[in-house]
Each structure stands twice: as structure tokens, then as C-alpha cells.
């Protein structure tokens, strides 16, 4: 019994750490797709955020800046950089009426190549490693609660709470405000929204730029929490595409994607920490590695029959 509790104590905080970047990516996708722009470039945007924050943190640290401050700056720069990159996608898919899937793919390729190009120019190698990530903290009082305390409130990254706040604000924004109603309507019946006097293009620009910003945040969170380095070879291991899968699995709804990303986070953690878990330590690394992706595929098979994307997603207006 004690053994299982120890395993759970390893897995749950790990799963939360893995969930947050995917959640941010998926939330970004949500803004974009709900406004009517298919966004396949979450992966590229997250990667670019990861790179931008790594470069910023390393450069600022060399100047001798306070450690926490460099991380905050890194995250802000990542959000701005990814937003700038997402502007290219917005421009292509909204103004230039390009095929959004192709434009997204181009942004992915551009992000991979450009970040590596810049990394080599800045640091001379394809990898940027930061000295250390965020220090984990216990939340006062709450971490003393039995069971819940050690699982959710001990040894947490402050970015986790930031991400959860962003999620909460997004929920409110999308469902309780005029702005949210308009944004969602742009993804369903843009012409109806336009006839009500709302600028559809503007709403879509906002949707895509927000998705860039949040994906950038997600990428930076990957760096400052568990990854600790920008690695051009591995990239972000397809987390951005997992985020898109989570978006579909979560039925394009904030609550749904919170659940689906938690599901992926849990499976990713089991795959990554499989070595220390008694029952599954004997499974070869390769099979553990493919487990989250297989689980995603199965989850998609079970949920896709009734899945319904925003009606106008992918259609230029």
C-alpha cells in the first residue's frame, strides 16, 4: 500500500508539470479554431517560444540579472516572439486567404529552421541550456492538507498556477463576455457576425495572435520547468501536435481540453517515469514511449465519431 502511495506521489506532480504546456498549446488552438482559423502550427509556435525563452534567459543571465527576473523576462519574450510568428499565419490565412493547413505546416517548418538558425548565430550550437529552471515551492498552509496537499500543493512550479489562471480567465472570456460570444460566432457563422457589424477579420486576428501568445507561454513553460534546455534535435517531441489532438478530444471546449490534456500529461508521465513504477518497469522503453501516442489514437477513435469542429474553421472569410 505504501509503495503505491509513493508511486502516486511521483506521478501526479509530474503529470501536472507535463499537462501545463500541452494545456496552453491546446488553449491557444482553441482561441484560433473557435475564431475560425485552423491552427496546425501550435508545435512550431511552442518550439519558437521554447527557443526564445532559452536565448533570452541565457543572454540576460550573462549580464548578471536576478535569476527569477530572467525567467519572467524569458517567458514574456517567448510570448511575444511566438505571437510575432503567429502573425505570419494570421496574415496568410486571414488576409491572403491561403490554405490554412499548408500555411500552418510552413510555419512549423519555418519555426524549426529559424530557431536553429538563430540558435547557431547566437550561441554557436544547436542547443541552449539554461543553468537551472524554476525552483519548486510548497504552497503555505494548503500543502499541509493530507492526501491533496502532497499531490497538488507541494513542490509546485509557479508557472503551473500561472497557466491555471490563464485557463480560468480564458474560460470566463470565452463564455461570459461579449467578446467571447463574438469570437465563437466567428468560427461558426462569420457572415452572421459580420452582418451584426462585427469585424470578423479583426476577431480572427485576435484569435490567432492569442494562440501564438499562449503557445509561446507553453513552450517557455516546457523550458523552465522540466526540460531545462532548447534542443534542436528533439524539438518539443510533438507536444504541439498532442495539444491539437487534445483540442479535438476535448471537443473544442475549455473544460474538455483541461480533462484531455490532463489525460495526456498522465500518460506522458507514466511513459517517462516508467522505470520507477514497480508493475511496468519491465516494459521496454520503446513501448513505454509509444504508449501516450497510442492512447491518444485510441481516445480519438472513441471520441471522433461525434466530434464536431467549429463550422467555419479553415474557411477564409
Amino acid at each position: 500500500m505504501n509503495g503505491i502511495w509513493d508511486v502516486i506521489k511521483i506521478i501526479i506532480p509530474g503529470a501536472i508539470a507535463y499537462t501545463m504546456p500541452i494545456l496552453m498549446g491546446a488553449l491557444g488552438g482553441l482561441y484560433s479554431e473557435r475564431s475560425g482559423v485552423t491552427n496546425l502550427c501550435i508545435e512550431g509556435l511552442m518550439l519558437f517560444g521554447c527557443f526564445a525563452s532559452a536565448a533570452t534567459i541565457v543572454k540576460l543571465q550573462a549580464l548578471g540579472m536576478n535569476y527569477t527576473l530572467t525567467i519572467v523576462c524569458g517567458i514574456c519574450v517567448a510570448m511575444l516572439a511566438s505571437m510575432a510568428l503567429s502573425y505570419l499565419h494570421a496574415l496568410a490565412s486571414i488576409k491572403l486567404k491561403a490554405d490554412q493547413t499548408i500555411s500552418g505546416t510552413a510555419i512549423n517548418m519555418l519555426s524549426t529552421a529559424l530557431s536553429l538558425f538563430l540558435a547557431q548565430t547566437i550561441t554557436g550550437s544547436g542547443n541552449i541550456t539554461i543553468v537551472r529552471g524554476i525552483i519548486r515551492n510548497n504552497i503555505p498552509i494548503l500543502s499541509k492538507i493530507p492526501v491533496v496537499g502532497p499531490l497538488f500543493f507541494s513542490q509546485t512550479y509557479w508557472t503551473t498556477w500561472l497557466c491555471l489562471i490563464v485557463w480560468g480567465v480564458s474560460y470566463f472570456l470565452l463564455y461570459k463576455t461579449n467578446f467571447g460570444l463574438r469570437l465563437r460566432a466567428c468560427g461558426e457563422h462569420p457572415s452572421a457576425v459580420a452582418s451584426a457589424g462585427v469585424n470578423v477579420h479583426k476577431m480572427r486576428y485576435i484569435g490567432v495572435l492569442l494562440s501564438g501568445m499562449l503557445s509561446g507561454l507553453g513552450g517557455a513553460v516546457i523550458l523552465v520547468t522540466y526540460a531545462g534546455e532548447y534542443n534542436s534535435g528533439a524539438g518539443i517531441n510533438g507536444l504541439g501536435f498532442l495539444a491539437i489532438a487534445a483540442l479535438i478530444f476535448g471537443q473544442w471546449k475549455p473544460l474538455g481540453i483541461l480533462g484531455s490534456t490532463a489525460f495526456f500529461g498522465l500518460f506522458m508521465t507514466i511513459a517517462n517515469t516508467g522505470r520507477v513504477i514497480p508493475g511496468i518497469a519491465s516494459i521496454p522503453t520503446g513501448f513505454l514511449g509509444l504508449f501516450p501516442y497510442l492512447a491518444t489514437l485510441i481516445a480519438l477513435i472513441l471520441s471522433s465519431k461525434k466530434s464536431r469542429a467549429p463550422l467555419a474553421s479553415g474557411q477564409p472569410f
Binding site: 493547413t101 501536435f241 479535438i248 514511449g289 509509444l290 489514437l297
Partner: peptide, 30 residues
Amino acid sequence: LKAKFNVHEVVSSIMLNWIAYWLVYDFIPR
């Protein structure tokens, strides 16, 4: 999966990419 279960081919084939990646990871040493 696209034909029978309406799973979007972009997402399913990306998952299949990673499944292949890990299978190869396992098969090479094996």
C-alpha cells in the same frame, strides 16, 4: 481511421509517426 471513425488524418498520422518512432527505437537494439 478517417474512413470508419472520422479521425482527422492529420492528427492520426502524427500519432502514427511517433508510434513508428518508438517502434524503431525498440527494434534497432532488438
